[in-house]
C-alpha cells in the first residue's frame, strides 16, 4: 500500500469548529477520541454492532466507527456532551440518572444519542417505537427496562414543557 497522505478536516462538534489532519481510512470515532479529545464517544465493537459510538451527524444518529472522519468534513456532529451539560442536563440525561438507567455507563453515550433523535422526531413514542429506536444500541447491564422507562419519562417531561409554553 502506498504511503498514506493526511488531509485537512474541519468539523463542527457540539457547536464548536475544530480542525485536524487525518488519513483517509481513519474513522470519525478514532479522530473524535484520539485527535479531538472527545473521549465521551465510546468505542465498543468498532464494527457497527453495538452503537456505543453513536453520534448525531447533521441531526441523524450514526455509528462513528462506520463513518470516515473525512465524510464528516464541514458537517455538524453532536456527541452526548452536546445534548446537555451537568448544569443544564437534557430531560433524557436527568431521567437516565433518576431511573437508574445507567450501570457501567458504557452504552449510555450512544443510548442517549439514539433516544435524543427519537424524541426530536416523535415526543410521544410508543414502547415499541422506543425499542426500535434503540435497537442499534447494545446494553449488557440493565436489561433495557430502565432505559426504556427513562426515555418514556423524558418524553413526558418534554411534552409537558411543550404544553406549558402554549
Amino acid at each position: 500500500m502506498s504511503k498514506t497522505k493526511l488531509y485537512p478536516l474541519k468539523i463542527n462538534i457540539n457547536g464548536v469548529w475544530k480542525k485536524a489532519k487525518v488519513a483517509p481510512e481513519e474513522s470519525l470515532l478514532k479522530v473524535l477520541r484520539e485527535k479531538l479529545g472527545h473521549t465521551e464517544v465510546k468505542e465498543g465493537c468498532g464494527k457497527g454492532d453495538c452503537g456505543a459510538c453513536a453520534v448525531l451527524l447533521n441531526g441523524k444518529p450514526v455509528n462513528a466507527c462506520l463513518t470516515l472522519a473525512l465524510q464528516a468534513d464541514q458537517q455538524k456532529v453532536v456527541t452526548v456532551k452536546g445534548i446537555g451539560t451537568p448544569d443544564r442536563p437534557h430531560p433524557l440525561q436527568e431521567s437516565f440518572v433518576k431511573r437508574g438507567a445507567i450501570q457501567c455507563g458504557f452504552c449510555t453515550a450512544g443510548m442517549l444519542v439514539s433516544a435524543k433523535n427519537l424524541l426530536d422526531e416523535n415526543p410521544n413514542p410508543s414502547r415499541d417505537e422506543i425499542k426500535k429506536a434503540i435497537s442499534g444500541n447494545l446494553c449488557r447491564c440493565t436489561g433495557y427496562k430502565k432505559i426504556i422507562e427513562a426515555i418514556e419519562e423524558a418524553a413526558q417531561k418534554i411534552r409537558q414543557t411543550i404544553y406549558d409554553k402554549r
Binding site: 502506498s2 481510512e25 468498532g46 462506520l66 463513518t67 470516515l68 465524510q71
Partner: peptide
C-alpha cells in the same frame, strides 16, 4: 491504482479495518 468507492461506509470501513481490502485510493 486500485480505487475503492465508498458511500455510507458500513461495508467498506469494516473491510478497510480488517484489511480485506487495501485500495490505493478512496473515492467518497
Amino acid at each position: 491504482g486500485k480505487a475503492k468507492l465508498i458511500a455510507g461506509g458500513t461495508n467498506v470501513i469494516p473491510d478497510l479495518r480488517g484489511k480485506t481490502i487495501q485500495p490505493d485510493a478512496l473515492i467518497d
